[in-house]
């Protein structure tokens, strides 16, 4: 394995580890930090009433799907980008024509 590739995989491994360690070693509900902030506001300022609510509030199940969709759209485009750029580069290298720029 090339060194650059190894470093890339180590970066991925580090990110996975950072996410996994709290799950394994720290107990917790792992609720959203925004929800916890909202709870604290409700506890410390009981007279505050949120004056607007979401127009469309998906159920937890549907929301998880929509979050997955968001990630998929982003990841899909990133994959498309790398595919296009790599192919372009390869074709350019293969043709290797002096007027190949562009």
């Amino acid at each position: 394995m090339k060194r650059a590739t190894l470093v890339n995989w180590l970066l991925v491994l580090a990110v996975v580890t950072i996410a996994a360690v709290p799950l394994v070693f720290i107990g917790g509900e792992f609720g959203g930090a925004d929800g916890i902030a909202a709870e604290r506001i409700a506890a410390d300022h009981p007279d505050y009433r949120p004056w607007a609510s979401a127009l469309f509030e998906p159920s937890a199940e549907v929301a998880s799907g929509l979050f997955a969709l968001q990630a998929a759209l982003g990841a899909g485009f990133l994959g498309y980008y790398f595919g296009v750029v790599r192919t372009k580069r390869r074709l350019r290298r293969e043709s290797d024509a002096p007027d190949g720029e562009g």
Binding site: A19, P22, L23, G28, F30, A33, G74, Y81
Partner: peptide, 27 residues
């Protein structure tokens, strides 16, 4: 154009990933 889209897509992916943290909550 494509790279600009990729930068936007990167933000799209990352802000969809709720990751557990040391405080026992997610962000």
């Amino acid at each position: 154009k494509l790279l600009l889209g990729a930068a936007g897509a990167f933000s799209f992916v990352l802000s969809a990933l709720k990751i557990p943290s040391v405080t026992g909550s997610c962000s």
